[in-house]
Amino acid sequence: MISRRPLLAAPMLGFTGQAHAQAPITLSLATATPGGGFPAYGAAFAAAVHAADPTLTIEPRNTAGSLENVNLLAEGRVDLGLVAGETATAAMAAGRGVTLLFAMYAQPGLFGLRGDNPIRSITELRGQRVAWGARGSGFVVLARQVMTGLGLDMERDFHGVLLDRAGDGPAMVMDGRVAALWGGGAGWPGFVTLARGPQGLRFVAPDAIERARILAADPALRPMALPAGSYPGQAEAVDSVGTWSLVLARPGLEEEVGYRLAAALHKARGDLGQRLAQASETTAENTASAVTDPALIQPGVRRFLRGLGLLG
């Protein structure tokens, strides 16, 4: 939680100006298990925000992932939390008081395999050992949405493995303990490790017919593509389906704190993308379009976005 909650010494000015005598604030940020995408994003996010505004300090902490993060936020035990896809939208819709701080990045769901694995389709993966991700991770929720849309059951149709740490998955693929690792998005640490392995990385994703079935079954999912060149040796884009991951704020996070964070992040947007490739999608524009109801956006962030002309 916020370790220091001083009153602001002066009112905030416009996003191009500077506030005078801003009091230092420290915020806690719930991420996920070591080795996954959320801790990598959390570290980049904290560093970029502090570089843009040294009065703001963000302290990432490892957790079990999206599901735990929602509970920590709702109970006021952390200030900010990284939450994936449907877990994030459900949390905001549930009336627990959590609000949208920023859009993080799109996460198209994909299976990562060793480059020498002959499997080429989800159908061929049936009956195989698959690492779905860390327990409590939003990736596991996304996997269930995708598999359900295909009429498959994660437990009956696969020999599924839930990880204690997201970082354990790549080694299991490389040494053959599992055939595939479920994950997604550009620069995801698990896929980066596989791509650098001796056999390289190859993706399996839903084909066009499968994507249509998934999207028809679950309107919360969206068509998404992994851009070409997102990983070493990936020459072509990979089409799939997925959701946006979001940075959420605890109930009652002060409006001025949200505004200061939004201003710092907007200033740091180039730096953030340099620190972590997929974080280049953390923009004011993506945040403004991440929800259909602006009331779900943290009040200070909402005010900042209106100042940019991105909200009515």
Rank of each mutant, 00 (worst) to 15 (best):
P11E: 15
L8G: 14
G112M: 07
Q278V: 09
V257E: 08
R156Y: 09
E68D: 09
G184H: 06
R213T: 04
A205W: 04
F191T: 10
D293T: 12
A237C: 07
E86C: 03
E124Q: 15
F102P: 02
F102M: 15
A171C: 01
G36S: 10
Q234Y: 03
A277Q: 03
P34E: 12
A10D: 04
D157N: 09
A48Q: 10
L272T: 08
V247D: 07
F139L: 14
R260T: 06
G183M: 09
G258F: 04
M174Q: 14
Y41G: 08
V98T: 11
A237R: 14
R144D: 15
L125E: 09
I122L: 12
W188Y: 15
G65A: 03
D79W: 01
F38I: 00
P170I: 13
Q199H: 13
N69Y: 11
T55F: 00
L29Q: 05
P206A: 09
Y105N: 13
G36V: 01
A216C: 09
R269D: 11
A40Y: 07
G270P: 04
E285C: 05
D239C: 06
M1A: 15
L248A: 03
L73V: 10
P11Q: 09
L272M: 10
V247N: 04
A228Q: 11
N286M: 03
A166E: 13
S240A: 12
D153F: 02
P118N: 12
A220L: 04
T89S: 13
S289M: 08
M172S: 09
L181P: 01
D168K: 05
T99V: 02
Y231F: 14
I209T: 14
L80S: 04
V173I: 07
